[in-house]
Amino acid sequence: MRKHSVFLLAASVSIAALPLAADTKPAQPNDFIEAFAKLSGDHKGMRKNHAKGVCAVGDFTASQEGVDHFDADVFSGKTLPVVYRFSLPGGNPMIPDNARAPRGFAAQFSLPNGSKHNIATLNVPVFAAKDPDTFLGLLQASAPATDGKPDMAKLAAFKTAHPDTKPLEQWLGSHQPPYSYATAEYFGIHTFYIRGKNGEQTKVRFQLKPQDGIKGLTDAELADKNGDFLSQRLTERLQQGPVSFDWVVSFGQPEDSVNDPTQQWPDNRETLTVGTLRLTSSGDDSCTKLNFDPNVLSLGFTASDDPVLRMRSPAYAISFGKRLSGQ
C-alpha cells in the first residue's frame, strides 16, 4: 500500500485559480492549505479544497476481463463495499453548482483483508498545472488583492509564462458543466501501474464512464446565479435505482506522459473495462471522516512519480487533520 496522497486533487480549483510561487523555495504541503484559504476564506472544520460535496455508498465488482488481465486485489471479482464522495473545487462550501469548474468523484474500496484502495478523479482530463510549484503559483496569482478581486493582469501574465496552465482552462471553456453528478465522465488524470498476470507492471490511466450517459447544463441553467441542485438531482436519480459507472483503463504507450498530468493521452489507446462502480444511496455522513488520498493503493497497484500526485498525500493529510480538529 502506498503512502498518502498529494494535495487536493482539487485540480479542481476553478480554472481562474492558479499562479506562481512568490519565491524560489519549493512548494510545501501547507502552502496549498494557506493558498486555498486565501482564495475561499477560512471555513473551520471543512475540507480545505472540495469543501462542498455529498457522500454516497455502493459497491464495485470487477469484470471478468479485469480479473483475467490484472493481478490486483481490487480486481478479484468479489463485490467490494465502496464509500463515494462527489464534490466541487475550492474551500467555499457555498460554491454554486453551475460553476465552470471541475467536479470531483472519489471512492474508497474496502477489501476483505482489511486494506483500503482509494481513487480520486475529476470530470476533466487534465490537471491545472504540470507540477506543485506551478500549481501553487497559479493559486497565489488567483488570490484576491486588497480590493477583494484578483489582479487579472498578474494572473494573465502568469498563465502566459506557464503554458501548461492552459489545457484545463481551454477544456472548461469548451464543455458545459454536468447536469448531474451521475451524467459526467470522470478521469484519473494521473498515471499508475497495475501488475498484470504475467507479473509485469502496466502503465495505465483510467476513466469512469457514466452508464446514464453524459449530459451538460443548458445555457439557462448555467446563467442561474443561485445554482444548488447537484445533491438533490443525485438523490432523485437514486430513487429510480442504482447509478453505475464503468471503470475503463487505458494502456499507455512508451511515448505517453507519465509524470505530467496536464498532458492528455491520445484517444486511440487500447482500453479495457475492468468493472462497474455502483451507487445505491446518497446523502449520509459515510464519507465525512474519510481522507481520499489517491496514493492509498491496494496490492497490485503502484503510483507513478508524478510530483502532483506525490504532493497530494501530505497536503491531504494536513487538511484532514485540521478538519477533524475543527480548524
Rank of each mutant, 00 (worst) to 15 (best):
N92P: 00
P144C: 13
V54R: 07
P266W: 11
N118Y: 05
R269T: 06
G283V: 02
Y181L: 12
S142G: 15
V249E: 12
Q140I: 15
D224G: 05
I15P: 10
G90A: 05
N268A: 09
V204N: 02
F7E: 03
L272S: 06
V296R: 11
L299D: 15
N92R: 10
E185N: 03
N291F: 07
A315N: 00
N259S: 14
L20K: 04
A106E: 04
P307K: 02
D306E: 10
P210A: 10
D68I: 01
S87Q: 07
Q327L: 12
N123Q: 05
G188A: 14
F60D: 02
A120R: 07
P254S: 09
L80I: 07
S325G: 13
D131W: 03
L88R: 13
N198Y: 09
V249K: 06
Q201I: 03
F187T: 02
D73P: 00
L299R: 15
D246M: 04
A22T: 14
M94K: 15
T288K: 15
V124W: 03
D256C: 10
L217K: 07
A11S: 13
P93Q: 13
A315M: 01
S313H: 06
V82S: 05
A156Q: 11
G137V: 05
L279G: 01
S174F: 00
T271C: 04
G53F: 09
A99Y: 04
I318C: 01
Q232K: 15
D285R: 10
R85L: 05
S286G: 02
K203E: 11
F320I: 00
R278M: 07
D246G: 01
S325Q: 11
F192V: 02
P96M: 04
L80Y: 06
F36V: 11
D71Y: 04
N198V: 03
V274M: 08
F127L: 09
D23V: 03
S313R: 13
F158I: 06
N198I: 02
A11E: 13
G213V: 05
K52S: 03
Q207S: 13
T183Y: 02
V74D: 03
H117N: 12
L217F: 08
S325T: 14
L122K: 07
G173W: 00
A22S: 12
M311C: 00
Q253V: 11
